[in-house]
Design a protein around this nucleic acid. Structure first.
Lengths: 335, 335
DNA sequence: CTTGCCGATTGAATCGTTTTAAGAACCGGG
DNA sequence: CCCGGTTCTTAAAACGATTCAATCGGCAAG
């Protein structure tokens, strides 16, 4: 098990370690002749610098930590790709953590990132973690909230207006003539879920004879949706339209409704709209109406802000909010 | 920007840095009294140890690097979750890299992982990288191939028999009575694609009047599939059945075939089978037949082997191969 | 009261890189 | 031929956690 260090390279090239370091980090300070010798030595020995030592020296790593609620949700992988792309431009890499909607895991990842002295943290938070993020900041690690607006001005955020999204979705259902509406999603502790519900209620407020039933789920997953869908199938009186808190839940509901033996027609018997507009929504059994969010753009923008704050910690925090967009497909096409 | 180091903790607790370190790493060597004092100091100061320094000292990090072909493919995120779970049991975390089916990106991630002196590398390789992995090994970094069997015995692998999978898929299509079959997928440089095609050809060999058309794509994505699907719609003579190299491609093909105006019926006009059996396959417009692979199990097993080799580099390499499984749904239900 | 032993604690050395202050080499001008 | 002023290069000092050899203190046996 051989380990090649700058020292070995320096010896081979017949220069000092300082020069080797300069070749790699400040080539303008070094003779072309030295560059050539050092480069040759590096290639011959297959030297690859030890990042731990480098990080130790300058205090922070070249990595950005990203904590998402659910890696299985294509929305978040799209956010991650946006972030990666922008980070790569700046020579940084992204390490992806999956909190799985669990406070424990979320906290564990934040610890890990702090141990690693990451360049910054992007997080789609579960609860209120402004204290935690404040501490990170005092340690020189900036943080940006992703897919969530911040409650105070101490931290930047990149989000989408979830209340508006919820309003859009339910307004659309009402426009199509449905009155008995159900909201499916949860847990309510997740801000995005709560906000979408608020939006839904707002849309309802203008229509006296409309009702909203709230069916809370344990998670925002296909499985959770399927459970609710099965329960709906079994019921005598079903809602006319369902607004699911995200597309995974919506697809679960859809699967259960259309299952052999159930034969509930969508949208004739029950209309259905989701949220996120993931790629698979348009390919569903019945192509799914949804609320589109600019996922990759969110990731890019978050990294952008993070880099600014990392470069100048005194810069003002920013709250960026994108607007969601209604996408109508067969699952809510007029009766 | 305050930084708290072991030195600060030691001072606060009234002990030496060595004792602080022992409290964290070898508590059995330390008096309960000291543990209490040190623990108190750690909590008061909010000390979090610097991973870079720790890594520098003992030569390797507590991270496993995982390079996948495509993070947008749910199959790979499932593999990643399996790997994460098993790694977490061992106190390690997984950093996920996305090669995007690009040699450049693949190589960049391997460089990054080597710089970081990761505990080990799991990789779903693009081309032949046994040299690269051999070098990693001489540096003390074991590697395990994921979703790919190794060509030689120098590196362990966890894979699924793709030839068998291809055979299963096409055999099923033949059993249902279809004869003019098309294979859609690519690039052929990806081993999994090539192997599945080999399997397809093997199944064909027994049936004299059956034909196989190969339609190569640029990537294994929904978009690529959609392009092929659109081309098929435009054609006068269409294959009776399509075997797509993975579910993303299959779903793209499906979307295009069923698009408004196209109105090609599946499976009546064209049958369709995919590969991977991702969650969304069962929720597709027409529920998709597919070849199932034990994704999470692959990830777990790979980490398992990696840990063994990290603990004892002289241990024999292992080649684990799982068998794929046919899942029949509506998209290939007999005419 | 001394000696020997054992476990707990200490402080210095170490990992590999970057940076900085100091020194060496070289230039042209006086 | 020397001198001031550039460039380049060098050696040494960080960074922070871990480990190891050395030391300390306490206790029992002689």
């Amino acid at each position: 098990m051989s380990v090649v260090s700058v020292k070995d390279v320096a010896q081979r090239a017949g220069v000092s370690v300082g020069t080797v370091s300069n070749v790699m980090n400040h080539p303008e300070k070094v003779t072309p002749d030295s560059i050539a010798k050092v480069q040759a030595a590096i290639d011959e020995l297959g030297f690859i610098r030890n990042d731990a030592a480098r990080q130790l020296r300058d205090g922070r790593s070249t990595t950005i930590g990203l904590v998402v609620l659910d890696v299985r949700n294509p929305f978040f992988t799209d956010v991650a790709r946006g972030a990666e792309d922008r980070a790569a431009d700046a020579g940084l890499s992204v390490i992806l953590g999956n909190s799985d909607e669990t406070v424990t895991r979320e906290s564990a990842y934040l610890d890990l990132f702090e141990q690693q002295r990451v360049h910054g943290v992007l997080i789609s938070p579960l609860g209120d973690i402004s204290d935690r993020l404040g501490r990170l900041r005092t340690r020189g690690i900036p943080a940006v909230l992703v897919d969530r607006s911040s409650s105070d001005d101490s931290v930047s955020s990149v989000s989408v207006d979830d209340v508006a999204g919820g309003r859009l979705a339910v307004q659309h259902l009402l426009d199509q003539g449905w009155r008995r509406i159900a909201f499916v999603g949860g847990p309510m502790g997740i801000r995005q879920v709560a906000d979408r519900l608020v939006g839904a209620r707002e849309a309802l407020a203008n229509v006296p004879d409309a009702t909203l039933e709230v069916i809370e789920t344990e998670a925002l997953s296909v499985i959770a949706g399927r459970t609710v869908g099965a329960a709906l199938v079994a019921r005598a009186e079903r809602p006319q339209a369902v607004f699911a808190a995200n597309d995974l839940v919506a697809m679960g509901v859809l699967q259960a409704l259309m299952m052999q033996g159930a034969d509930v027609r969508v949208p004739q018997d029950v209309a259905l709209i989701g949220y996120d507009d993931i790629d698979f929504a348009s390919a569903a059994v019945v192509p799914l109406s949804s609320i589109r969010q600019p996922a990759a753009l969110i990731g890019q923008t978050a990294v952008e802000i993070l880099l600014e704050e990392a470069a100048d910690p005194s810069i003002a925090r920013r709250q960026v909010e994108f607007q969601p967009e209604l996408v109508v497909r067969a699952s809510t096409f007029g009766v």
